[in-house]
Design a binder for these strands. Sequence first.
DNA 1: TTGTAAGCGTTATCAT
DNA 2: ATGATAACGCTTACAA
Lengths: 338, 338
Amino acid sequence: METATIKDIAKALNLSTSTVSRALRGSYEINPETKRIVLECAEKLNYRPNPIALSLKENRSRAIGVIVPEIDNPFFSQAINGIEAIAYNRGYHVVIFQSHESYERELVNVQHLLARRVDGVLISLSGQTNNYEHLHGLQEKGVPLVFFDRFTDAITTHKVIADNFKGAFEGTEHLILSGRKKIAHLGASSFLSITTERIKGYKAALEKYNIPFDESLIRYCNFSIQEMETIIDDLLSESNPPDAIFTVSDRLAMACLTILKEKHIAIPKDIAVMGFTNLKVASLLEPAFTAVVQPALEMGQRAAELLLDLVEKKSKAPTNFQTIRLPTELVIRKSTAL
Amino acid sequence: METATIKDIAKALNLSTSTVSRALRGSYEINPETKRIVLECAEKLNYRPNPIALSLKENRSRAIGVIVPEIDNPFFSQAINGIEAIAYNRGYHVVIFQSHESYERELVNVQHLLARRVDGVLISLSGQTNNYEHLHGLQEKGVPLVFFDRFTDAITTHKVIADNFKGAFEGTEHLILSGRKKIAHLGASSFLSITTERIKGYKAALEKYNIPFDESLIRYCNFSIQEMETIIDDLLSESNPPDAIFTVSDRLAMACLTILKEKHIAIPKDIAVMGFTNLKVASLLEPAFTAVVQPALEMGQRAAELLLDLVEKKSKAPTNFQTIRLPTELVIRKSTAL
DNA sequence: TTGTAAGCGTTATCAT
DNA sequence: ATGATAACGCTTACAA
């Protein structure tokens, strides 16, 4: 059974396709009776408008593209969840791409999205991206773009991000106040806003408590778990290892805890571990772990809302682009008996 | 700057669109010189074929649809990762929908996928689904369908699933051999294959060791974390609570561990906990937790491969539908010092 | 109130 | 070797 088209209805009813089209979309200028029989017939034939034909005509797809570093990362899958919820409610589909932290891949993703004529793009930058021509390209072609989580100031548009500075400041302060003297900071790629902003927060906290900043305590690792492990191992095997570790992502936190456990290092006692995660993950981790919880779901929702507003915007009035900083929450869980 | 079309190239070169089209796709019957200048011009204008126009013409979209209960679930996000990898390599896009464990939502998702003319569908059934007309509908319209993880025998097609019976058997056996006498089984919805198959494995293990089966030790919970907690609480507050709990999903395992910890119940000592999860989550959970690890990534990959084979199949020869059961792995982690 | 025709970008068929 | 035309499904001036 093939899908019925407007033509089929027109033929069945001896009407023109334009009449059917109008009746279907409830135009004024149509005889109520005609409208009735058209709708009835459409129902009978199980007519479904072909969105592809519409896309071709209107040069838009009612789909938005999302580019994330990895789907299989709790932060991003939760953000996508938020995006999907909003998009679904507003009648849009979501097409997902992964950059796998690769600039080249991100480039290709953008080209695919352009080819697909998505109506807008949500992106969280790859850790390798430090050139933004592809994003300018999107904007030049009039495709609205909104950043979430990882952005660049090189592009003017809405940004929905965590309050990285404040989160890192509060987290670091918490470590200091609980007596830690030597706090390592495990960042992602140095290109990323989440890294630079968090390092600033970290530094500011050290400064407030007159702790000298030690460059060697900052490490960058963006890619494989493998690489993270190497770096963490390296950090821990120094003659005078840190007594606290601040990590900037779920995966770093996990890698860190795993290694510490393997090395039989007591987490609250010998080394304090804290870092940016999302709530679900935080609840799974070592109870002594302190989480700077990011509102991943809300970030996705807000970003999607802003994007769809841009997409549906009719007026050509200049947009006031916003940078929304969602608050993080410091979660200190009791170390319950296991 | 607008996107260039074949027409633009034709106009610029004083050729017909058909010639340009043929040159672009490297037809024999074209003058090498013409071909050259066309390609050159296409390059200059940054021509990109419009996949929407192609879709309309060919009545296909080079996109596959995926329906999962929840994106934000480590098992599914990992499976999607596998799907995406294969689809990307073979030139397909992935459109993702969530059923949120709701039959109605799944129905709507299927309709959207039909409207979008996806070339094929991968689905893992919602916990509420016990009517399969919508899936028959897909098949009637010639849209290939492949199940992964959660399937029904009411539909004839490829199925890529975990070896649920064996996994549950081995897991339960492990609990029995480590001295547990009263093993509770926390299933998802009773409609789901993952539930029924795993219960069979559980029963078979009990039988092997002559442990009488006690219906009241089996509980079903498919939905909110809230509901899971109620059920687990209920189970634990019986006069003679179980000394082991077997859970059939990541989320159940998490809910279970959380509650036990809150109640200060010693996990290896008072109650053994084990269950189906994926490796990433398993490594984060309570070290005394025993995991029946499912190959989520591979499941996604295999399912996507089978689906794309169906999609691209030319011959009308009847297909031999396969049911691929991927082995699970019993992971017993040492309870390292924390 | 309804019909005719053009057009969205592309390719296939049938000329030339 | 190349061009003209129709067609994919739909909307929308413009005509009637």
